[in-house]
Simulated scan of single mutants.
Amino acid sequence: MTTHKIGTREEWLAARLALLEEEKALTRRSDELARQRQALPWVLVDKAYRFETDDGTASLVDLFRGRSQLLVYHFMFGPDYTAGCPSCSAIADGFDGVVAHLAHHDVMLWAISRAPLAKLRAYKRRMGWTFPWASSLGGDFNADFSVAFSESQQHEGGIEYNYRREEPLAEIPSRGIPDGDAIGAAMSGTDVATYTRERPGMSAFVLEDGIVYHNYSTYARGLDGLWGMYQWLDRAPKGRNEKGVWWRRHDEYDKD
């Protein structure tokens, strides 16, 4: 027998209308936060980053592909991983549907990881993805944008992720799910220490007069809005309803 409140249609409508006012307030607040993101100062990017792509070696400017805006998803796939992070993979499942729309609205979307291009290509084929994905192996891009860290940083407590300093070998903040790092590491074919030297994030860049500027970066729970399945679960009757890492790569679920 259900323990949830049961009501009449009239009671439901009254509660729904009250909630609607809260949802409208949240939407207006979200619009204002978007304006504040866009108003952040632009920071000159003067380092000559190089990436390996399906079309050959590319600069950061090349990744814009004629657009004035570039969005980068920092995908956790380190050089020693055997597969991409399952959480990043769940987020990336939503990229193919929006890449074309963004590209026709002056925005390029790329995933960038430190794994070598051959690994990215193989994993991309496995997942059936088509969005642009570049390797930053051997460069400073991931470290400079706070999504890759060294062993010495990890052991000496020098990791600063999501704008705060971590304790040595601290876990990735991930909704407080127990053993999240251990499960993610096992699913990525590596150990926890190696796994957590990579971190997820998203960064935004703008190109003006041939000069690239950094506009915005977000990490951890700041990526929630990009994780499509959670937007649906937040509207489902039981919500996220999580007791552990329940998700898998889309080709790892049992077939019905």
Rank of each mutant, 00 (worst) to 15 (best):
Ala103Lys: 11
Ser136Gln: 10
Trp129Ile: 08
Val99Leu: 08
Trp129Ser: 12
Ala143Thr: 05
Gly128Ala: 15
Leu137Ser: 10
Val98Ile: 13
Phe131Glu: 10
Ser135Trp: 15
Val99Met: 08
Ala100Trp: 06
Ala143Phe: 09
Asp144Ala: 11
Arg121Val: 10
Trp129Val: 11
Ala148Lys: 07
Asp144Asn: 11
Pro132Met: 11
Gly97Trp: 07
Arg121His: 07
Ala103Phe: 12
Ala134Ile: 06
Leu109Tyr: 03
Ile112Trp: 03
Pro116Arg: 05
Val107Cys: 13
Ile112Phe: 07
Trp133Glu: 06
Ser136Asp: 12
Met108Cys: 13
Ala118Phe: 12
Leu120Val: 08
Gly128Thr: 05
Leu137Glu: 12
Gly139Ser: 06
Phe145Ile: 15
Ser113Trp: 02
Asp144Val: 10
Ser113Thr: 03
Phe141Ile: 14
Ala118Thr: 13
Arg114Phe: 15
Ala134Asn: 02
Trp110Cys: 05
Gly97Cys: 02
Val107Phe: 12
Gly128Arg: 02
Leu120Ser: 04
Pro116His: 08
Arg126Thr: 00
Gly128Asn: 05
His105Pro: 08
Glu151Val: 14
Leu109Trp: 07
Leu109Ile: 06
Ala143Ile: 11
Phe149Trp: 14
Glu151Gln: 14
Pro116Glu: 05
Val99Gly: 08
Met108Asp: 09
Phe149Thr: 08
Thr130Ser: 14
Asp106Asn: 07
Asp140Gly: 00
Ala111Asp: 09
Asp106Cys: 08
Lys119Met: 07
Ala122Asp: 01
Leu137Thr: 13
Val99His: 09
Asp144Gln: 06
Ser135Ala: 02
Trp129Asn: 11
Ser146Met: 09
Ile112Asn: 00
Ala122Ser: 02
Val147Ala: 09
Leu120Phe: 03
His101Ala: 11
Arg121Thr: 14
Leu137Gln: 13
Ala103Tyr: 14
Asn142Lys: 04
Leu120Met: 04
Leu137Ile: 14
Asp140Val: 05
Ser136Lys: 09
Tyr123Asp: 15
Ala143Gly: 05
Arg114Cys: 15
Ser135Phe: 08
Ala122Arg: 02
His101Asp: 14
Gly138Pro: 05
Ser135Thr: 00
Leu120Gln: 06
Arg125Thr: 12
Met127Ala: 10
Leu109Gln: 08
Ala122Ile: 01
Val147His: 06
Trp110Lys: 07
His105Leu: 03
Asp144Arg: 11
Pro116Asn: 06
Trp133Asn: 04
Asp144Lys: 12
Pro116Val: 03
Gly139Glu: 06
Gly97Glu: 02
Leu117Ser: 10
Ala103Pro: 04
His104Val: 14
Arg126His: 00
Leu109Glu: 04
His105Phe: 00
Gly139His: 05
Pro132Asp: 07
Ile112Ser: 05
